[in-house]
Design a protein around this nucleic acid. Structure first.
Lengths: 363, 363
DNA sequence: CGCTAGACTGCAAACGATTGCAAAAAGCTA
DNA sequence: TAGCTTTTTGCAATCGTTTGCAGTCTAGCG
């Protein structure tokens, strides 16, 4: 079917081994044959068969990226970054969707190693630590975004404590004293870390932590809606909400829209992680950017380092933190000390609620 | 490193070939040895090396999905569907991001074929027709979502004419007579087809086509904003806008927010293709669903069929159309014949525009 | 001119599976 | 038990590369 090394060798009237050496440039061939062979190879349209090569060398030029889903905007940009970087180096990215499902992750990992991937970047579910640890003996692995506490694999993380601190401080600097927090489940690292950053900012500012203002839950829009309602129904509702749980933002926005709460006039809103539509939304939504691009880039760097280092790529560092940064848009507003109590009350009487009753979708 | 067939054979005191036959179940071995060998293989933790197997068989159990990007929500669900389906069949999905870039697509295609993928589902850019055609000789290929007119590859398409017709008719049935259309570039199939569906619905309803209401442009939010402004600045602005260009929706929404135009009271809005946040938006945005799930499933079906059929999987059908359907949410409103002229004028004087001036984002 | 070192090259054995062919074993009939 | 068919097995080649080893060639030197 396709032209093989043998064909090239025949055309050049040399042995296969010479052809191989000339084309891979192992320097053991004369300048002349080397050039002649590259020319002939090009003319014949020869492209080495990675399978055959892989069989012999045990490498595949394949690097896998294993993420939970692709709905998460951060994963999207990470995938794109990783793909671009690897491609430039002649690797092909294998993007796998593990679905945050332990069994599936495990299966996928096995398949990947069977395929002799040269490296792996994984967002661990945290339940396959042992397996990951075992695989790490065969394949360079870097963990991304999440740490698997059962392993001591090299991990590239967002600086969630700092990000949450940054965001909370920003709101405090704008004069907010009652800041609602909607955060991820506390059995995840990021959930805990973001909470801790929030608490630290509060403490530094001398604001007492009020547990009624803090809600933790799953990474789904419904959570956002439920939490938002609870917050807004408080006797003294917050003047700002920090949604430190990406997917929950949708739910929060829906509730504010339903209740006709104007952002940022009636309520300041700050979110964690960007979504493409945040800056198109009116008001454009301010965020704490977790630095997905940087995370991905760093993960690739580290992985490549390990792959080069053949076995002992560890530089002793086990954990890398990528700084978060604040992106101010239009959803947070300065508040005067006195007007804090105004929050939560719609500025105009709800007069347009008529059309809110959702029509059931017809086929 | 890992346990090979040879190890299994040795442990069982048979030859490698027997082991191979027993484990692949070619039926040429006695029941007893077969069972004995599977047991031993399991005990030893044997897993066949796909690389070695691939070298011999020319197959890789790898199927590639080549899309433009992952930002597009439709591509996300397609990727997830394809992955799930293939996985169940023991294939590993290679998700590649071609970036709508001709050269990159071409490179990727080459790499994929080198890796001896067993099948390919591709959203063609439309510029590498010749290459695709050539590859199709080696690998089963199914095109998805877009047709490459330079080829006669089997293609699974959304029924864009029907979808656009459905959407437009829906608006007409709600009483709209002046319906703005924001559609993709007219050098893409979907752009043309959606326009044609729109035109047909108009014609059927006896409404004259008004070219000032039709805008075509790139698939980016900016386009949406520009087109929306043009439409709303018209002497007789439309009472409904059909955004038949996915990415443009963001831009349209921004403009309506800026101008304080209430949806659906002042303007009905209907979009093409779903986005996860559409149903969380207030008002929830009605859409024409292009059936991404169905598309992906059908593409997989067709691909598998071709892969099985070894060479002549063509059933004569060159093109499959997956029906679109209307999902009614809250962004379209019935309009009385008389009040059509009201559209475009904000119902209340712009009083809250103060905070609209975007603060420039600080680092 | 002969000899040796060094630079190139080719032979052949891997890598880990699959598979055609022929030999061995088993089952059957007479 | 011989003779035949039908399973079942093993040998060895093969897929397309890479690579250790040994052989060939050239050049340089005395």
């Amino acid at each position: 079917m396709s032209v093989t090394l043998k064909d090239v060798a025949q055309a050049a009237r040399v042995s296969v081994s010479t052809a191989s050496r000339a084309l891979t440039g192992t320097g053991l061939t004369s300048e002349r044959t080397q050039q002649r062979l590259t020319r002939i190879a090009r003319e014949l349209g020869y492209r080495p068969n990675p399978i055959a090569r892989g069989l012999k060398t045990g490498q595949s030029r394949l690097v896998a990226l294993l993420v939970h889903n692709l709905t998460n905007a951060s994963f999207q940009v990470m995938a794109e970054v990783v793909q671009a970087r690897l491609k430039a180096l002649g690797y092909q990215m294998l993007l796998c969707i593990g679905g945050d499902d332990t069994q599936q992750e495990s299966d996928t990992l096995t398949t990947l190693v069977d395929h002799r991937i040269d490296g792996l970047i994984v967002v661990p579910t945290g339940k396959n630590g042992a397996q990951l640890e075992a695989l790490a003996k065969d394949v360079p692995i870097v963990c991304l975004v999440r740490r698997d506490d059962a392993t001591d694999l090299e991990t590239v993380l967002a600086d969630d404590p700092q990000g949450a601190y940054l965001g909370t401080r920003h709101l405090i600097e704008l004069g907010h004293k009652r800041i609602g927090l909607i955060v991820g489940r506390q059995d995840t690292t990021s959930g805990r870390e973001r909470l801790s950053g929030y608490v630290r900012a509060l403490r530094e500012a001398g604001i007492a932590k009020d547990d009624t203002l803090i809600h933790a839950g799953h990474f789904v829009p419904e959570t956002g809606a439920t939490c938002a309602r609870k917050l807004l129904d408080l006797p003294r509702p917050p003047s700002a909400i920090f949604v430190a749980n990406h997917e929950a933002t949708l739910g929060v926005l829906r509730v504010t829209a339903e209740r006709n709460i104007a952002i940022p006039d009636d309520l300041s809103l700050l979110c964690y992680e960007d979504m493409p539509w945040f800056e198109w939304h009116r008001p454009a939504i301010s965020i704490v950017d977790n630095g997905a691009r940087d995370l991905a880039n760093l993960a690739v760097d580290r992985l490549l380092h390990r792959m080069d280092a053949k076995g002992n790529g560890s530089d002793g560092v086990r954990e890398y933190r990528v700084g978060a940064r604040l992106v101010q848009r239009d959803s947070c507003r300065r508040i005067e000390a006195t007007s804090a109590a105004r929050a939560g009350k719609p500025k105009s009487a709800a007069s347009k609620s008529k059309s809110s009753a959702a029509k059931p979708a017809k086929v």
